[in-house]
Computed example of a mutant assay.
Amino acid sequence: MGGGQGATGGRGAGRGRRSSASGRQTAAAWILTLPFVVLFLAFTAGPVLGSLGMSFTDLRQRDLRTPFAVNGVGFDNYVKALSDETFRKAALNTAYFVLVGVPLTLALALAAAVLLDRGVKRFQSLFKVAYYLPVITSIVAIAVIWRFVLAPESGLLNTVLSWAGIDGPNWLASKTWAMPSLIMMAVWRNFGSAMIIFLAGLQGIPATVEEAGQLDGAGSWQRFRYLIVPLLRPTILFTSVTTGIGYLQFFEEPFVMTQGGPLNSTVSVSMYTYQQFGFGNYGVATAMSYILFVVIAVITFIQFRLLREK
């Protein structure tokens, strides 16, 4: 009996030591994560919740000295944003930019990745760097290059078109061609990032997969369509989500190249929201920001539903 009691006491003491050690580990973990928690609450969660509350008030620039004296207006700011003709125009411009730009970017990125993976063996690293370089290049430097390319009289593109007897337009000053010009620039600037991800996905597919398809008599296109693309579904999902989110928030291209013109034909939702902040319409501007946030969340959810692994 004494031995049984000793064994029971030993097990209880062991559990107590383990519990004490677990408590110390938990305390140490919280101490280590405390700086992040404090910074997250102060600079992320706090401002996000504050801006959400701001979107339901009539806060303007003149109210900054007395921010707690503003009045609640319910959903009036959201109604004003959705009834704003320029905001609706900006939403259509953004939709145009995304619906054309994202498929072009992904298609070009996938084509370049396939060529680098299957066709180009020598100097592959050089091509990777060359394609990725625009991603890390300043938008100001890119704007200088593209202004030279798209200049109406002495631009490189119109010069090449003149050799074929075509009189090129004033690309950035045309309501018809300004947005396609920005899309071309965005695709050129961003496809390198998606290409690197696609290339990693292609190189992660075992060679035996294609060999099995080839033994079954499948041609190159059939192997790519029915074997490679399904295996790339997670990669396609990731690139489409990240590219789509970036394009829905596009701001730098019109801000630097066209200032939203001509006649608001290139103004985006992000740019118009920025302008409203500049005008001091903080309540309406934050409402526009959250409308864009909801749209991004819905589109991302749809992409996950359509492109998830089956």
Rank of each mutant, 00 (worst) to 15 (best):
T8V: 14
G9F: 11
G10Y: 12
G12I: 08
R15C: 04
R17E: 15
R17H: 10
R18S: 09
R18G: 12
R18P: 07
R18C: 10
S20P: 01
A21M: 12
Q25N: 15
A27D: 09
I31R: 13
L32F: 15
F36N: 10
L41N: 14
G50S: 09
L59V: 13
R60W: 08
D63G: 03
D63H: 07
T66I: 07
F68E: 10
V70F: 09
V70R: 09
N71M: 09
N71G: 13
F75D: 06
D76W: 08
N77F: 09
K80Y: 12
E85D: 13
T86D: 09
T86P: 06
F87Y: 15
F87I: 07
K89I: 14
L92E: 03
T94M: 04
Y96P: 10
F97I: 02
F97V: 05
V98K: 03
V98I: 00
P103N: 13
T105G: 08
L106M: 01
A107P: 05
L110P: 13
A113M: 01
L116W: 01
L116G: 12
G119K: 07
V120F: 01
V120P: 06
K121M: 05
F123A: 14
K128M: 05
V129D: 01
A130M: 01
Y131C: 03
Y132S: 02
L133Y: 02
I136T: 15
A143P: 00
A143R: 02
R147K: 06
A151I: 08
S154N: 11
L161I: 14
S162P: 02
W163S: 11
D167P: 05
P169D: 05
W171S: 01
A173F: 11
A173Y: 06
S181Y: 02
W188N: 03
R189G: 01
G192F: 10
S193H: 10
I196R: 01
I197L: 00
V209A: 02
A212P: 12
G213K: 06
L215D: 07
L215M: 15
L215I: 15
G219M: 03
S220Q: 12
R223D: 03
V229R: 01
P234C: 08
L237T: 14
S240A: 15
V241L: 04
T243I: 04
I245C: 02
G246F: 04
L248G: 09
F251W: 13
F251D: 10
M257T: 04
Q259V: 06
N264F: 14
N264A: 13
S265V: 12
T266F: 07
T266D: 06
S268F: 13
V269N: 08
V269Q: 11
S270F: 08
Y272E: 00
Q275E: 13
Q275T: 14
Q276T: 09
F277D: 06
G280T: 10
N281A: 12
N281I: 07
Y282W: 11
Y290I: 01
Y290T: 00
I291C: 03
V295R: 10
V295P: 06
V298H: 08
F304M: 04
R305P: 06
L307V: 04
E309R: 07
